[in-house]
Design a protein around this nucleic acid. Sequence first.
DNA 1: CATTATTTTTAGAATAGCCTAAACTACTAC
DNA 2: GTAGTAGTTTAGGCTATTCTAAAAATAATG
Lengths: 230, 230
Amino acid sequence: MVTMRPATADSQSVQDFLKAVYTLQQKMERVSTNALAEMLSISAPSVTDMAHRMMLAELVNYEKYHGVRLTETGEREALRVIRRHRLIELYLVTDLGYALHEVHDEAEQLEHAVSDRFIAALAEKLDHPTLDSHGEVIPGIDGTCHYRELHTPSQFPIGIKAKVACLNSNNPEILQHLMGKGFTLGSQVEIITREPFEGPLTVLIDGKTVMVGYTVATYISVEQDKGAGK
Amino acid sequence: MVTMRPATADSQSVQDFLKAVYTLQQKMERVSTNALAEMLSISAPSVTDMAHRMMLAELVNYEKYHGVRLTETGEREALRVIRRHRLIELYLVTDLGYALHEVHDEAEQLEHAVSDRFIAALAEKLDHPTLDSHGEVIPGIDGTCHYRELHTPSQFPIGIKAKVACLNSNNPEILQHLMGKGFTLGSQVEIITREPFEGPLTVLIDGKTVMVGYTVATYISVEQDKGAGK
DNA sequence: CATTATTTTTAGAATAGCCTAAACTACTAC
DNA sequence: GTAGTAGTTTAGGCTATTCTAAAAATAATG
């Protein structure tokens, strides 16, 4: 290791890295090299290297062998990138006729190419939305996130009415599978039966009964209907 | 020179190179290294290098010390890139409220990030236009270009009515200057007087008399009004 | 607690895209 | 037709981002 220059916050790979750390941080305290390598589809050594350079840039706090965590600056940057991504996704569906399963890859490219001017225009045109086309929260320009209380179908009580609030996958096949069964944002759902040992669920969606596998159901989030007492 | 790998046609710099060669080819038989270096704002040696790699990829025909010319494949690729660029420019103005002088830089980035799916969506939404927001021809998917017979104000006969058909600049200052004087696409114009020795022109635009410098006028193209016999 | 297995890091290397400085061509003008 | 200048190319280098193979550290297991 000769010298090492700090990462520049506006590079594509740095932005992808920030996003990945942010996402993984919601599930784990510190984010491991391997987890990042997996999510970013790059090798572990590349992650280590990036972690070093991003620490120099004060975007993450990195401890050898103990993973990474976003600094305050890092989190701010991450939220900016996520805001871009999600505004673009929503726009693609709303104004350009994209299907939900098509938007992720396109937005992934666009988010790095687009200017602040462009993002502002989208936000304006979409009337400053807080949820994207997957139902995920779009952070505000100031980084604020309007979170809701969401549940996984696999744990939501049987017999209670709820609405589909989020389809948490970027995998086109999974999204198509779910939408094919009737899971679209805002659909009314009610769990009818649940098999033990991670078995399938029977669900009533907008009046139609369907079955869903346990695994694939983890990509759905529901929100209890307002007014429907617990 | 050890070995040299061919250029990949989908890289950003290759696409910029193709566009630059295409543009310069309209004015000169073979396109010189220096002309390209100038247009692309990179050094001459970088151009030479790229020329080599693009010849291996059969995108240009390059002769040492005698510049470059697009092959058939190269021209096809160039037109694809230009189509993207211009569709995006038009879209930014039409649907996202951009001013003309803002679109070039944005489109320059977007054209490399956007998928064919995206371009198809734009073309559809804009109803398959053949002219962009500058008034430049948008090549069709098959590469066809619907050219018109255009003239420079500096050479157009005095006293003949015409319409502004194209504002050929990507320089925001120049565009703002011209639009400030009333030169917008479709405006009626008539040359009133012309000073010798590359002097300024007096022009009647939509009923208003303005003066324009010779140099800046070269960025305007006009088209003679139909029906107005010569 | 020692050994094994897993995870992470170091070392060394490749590629695309750029650069500067120096060598070389080609054209132009006497 | 040769000298000088303008334009081009070669040589050698640098950075960001990635990789593989091997070494080192941590975590898991008996």
